[in-house]
Design a protein around this nucleic acid. Structure first.
Lengths: 292, 292
DNA sequence: CACACTTACGATATTCGTAAGGATT
DNA sequence: AATCCTTACGAATATCGTAAGTGTG
């Protein structure tokens, strides 16, 4: 019992005529006749009674007809759904991105990408770096964006750019003059950071420890925005990924380059090493890489 | 997307190996490889990723697998159900028969037939002749058994035997002597009949009217059994189809041949002219005809 | 004889298995 | 070198369309 035979049967059963069914199927009468015959033989009995003037359904044929229509419809639906996935007319991509990336890079990308494939459903979770890794690892999201993870082997990482951390100070700070600032200058001020665990915080501490510098922390916040407003209010200084530069300057904060050591870290796409990406996810990834 | 391709895909997806799938499918590796390839081409993307050491499902392949299994199972189920119908391992035949036939002829037939095809579901409604015709006409039953209907064209009738009506009298009646009785003898006694409408009653009246004889009715009953017991009690005589002979003699009633005119009527299978019979119904019909 | 389905038959398209190729461990 | 999937190619199978056949109104 092949789809071809079933299509032939439904066409004859619905038109009650081999001749009319032929037209619908774009087939010759003999081919149709043989298709029905072979179907009947494979099932072990007659589905249609053919008198020379009339074609009728047998009771078995009448039982088969709705089932055949259902089977063919299911078949076609499954096929069509998958085709749409591959042609990006349908699909779903789940993304986790660290907040700075989600806020400063993703919106522009997604707006442009959406115009290309408006029917793709894209969900973004902005969560901290650690959760990005967790979501990617558990398979709950397909794509992650964040700093390069340390645990290689588990994750595949494709760098998009290297983020060089920058100092942020109040607009009226005496440090603003040069546009560049050294760590010794910076650390002489009250320091505002994110709370642990935070990848930015950790990176900062590790880099300073390596140079024998010590961090004197005046305030700890959960969110970068809070840090920013504390800095803007003149309560201290901080160091943030340059990803946030636009955000910071919008608030009125001054961003300065820090040197000796300059802290930098690759930012990019994080996926599971042993997991395939869907066509839709691949399409977004290649779009992002082209754009960069 | 053919069932062949889908079977190939599910086999590979489940074994995660072309080589093992080959064995399961009794196919060569190249044939399997091409089948998967052609499926992927028809869908427009990859379903499986093949590294030389490992076969994995793409997200799209993972989506297809359960659907493919469902489609194949539905397909096979539909096919198998219909096969069972044709091979009489499954099916349902609905029968309507007039009471005398249902009680005296059908039980033996059905008992024997049931041994041949124990899985066929056979339902019998014992209703009066008029309802037999109605049930067959409306398509609510497939087979009817009763007297030959007058409305030809609507019904097809296949005679099984001709029923010759017989007189029934009390065991101690003076009429019992000869084994034969004439209408004039019979009509001199009180007469017990079924109520109108009844095909037996109508047939009786029509036949007598044609010969200029008149019926003098003492009692009217709804059921033949009641007629029988009234006759047995000596309250009168009656005329019934010889189909009931066994039933009557079991009660103790004497059955006599009536002559001049002898009333007879064909009894047989009634079906709708323009309706096909199911394989199961045809099988019962041919069984009955062989047995007769 | 005209209409509608079936059978016959040669041509075409799929599908198959064997053999060779390529890549990875 | 061994394993596993893919490509190449000739053979077998299935399917198609044209032409002839059959049966009914």
């Amino acid at each position: 019992m092949t789809p071809r035979q079933l299509k032939a049967f439904t066409a004859v059963a619905q038109t009650l005529s081999f001749a009319r069914a032929c037209e619908r199927l774009h087939m010759s009468q003999p081919a149709l006749s043989l298709a029905i015959k072979s179907l009947e033989e494979s099932l072990g009995g007659r589905l249609l009674t053919r008198t020379t003037r009339e074609v009728r359904l047998t009771p078995e044929g009448a039982e088969l007809l709705p089932q055949a229509l259902q089977l063919l419809a299911d078949w076609e639906n499954a096929r069509e759904r998958l085709r749409q996935r591959f042609t990006l007319q349908r699909g779903r991509v789940t993304i986790a991105a660290m907040p700075s990336f989600a806020a400063n890079i993703l919106p522009g990308i997604l707006r442009e990408y959406r115009e290309l494939h408006p029917n793709l459903e894209i969900t973004v979770q902005d969560v901290v770096q650690e959760q990005v890794l967790e979501l990617v690892d558990s398979g709950r999201v397909e794509l992650g964006f964040g700093f390069e993870p340390e645990a290689r082997g588990k994750f595949a990482f494709a760098s998009l750019f290297v983020d060089r951390f920058m100092a942020i100070v109040a607009p009226d700070s005496p440090l603003t003059g040069a546009g560049t600032v050294s760590w010794t200058q910076l650390l002489s001020h009250d320091f505002i950071t994110l709370q642990r665990p935070s990848s930015t915080r950790r990176l900062l501490e590790e880099s300073l420890a390596a140079k024998g510098l010590e961090l004197r922390i005046a305030h700890e916040c959960h969110q970068l925005v809070t840090v920013a407003y504390l800095v803007a209010a003149g309560l201290g200084v901080s160091v943030v990924p340059s990803l946030c530069e636009r955000q910071m300057t919008a608030i009125g904060i001054r961003c300065l380059r820090v040197q000796r050591p300059s802290i930098h870290k690759a930012v990019g796409l994080i996926t599971r090493q042993d997991r395939e990406l869907s066509t839709a996810a691949l399409s977004i990834v290649s779009f992002i890489r082209e754009r960069a």
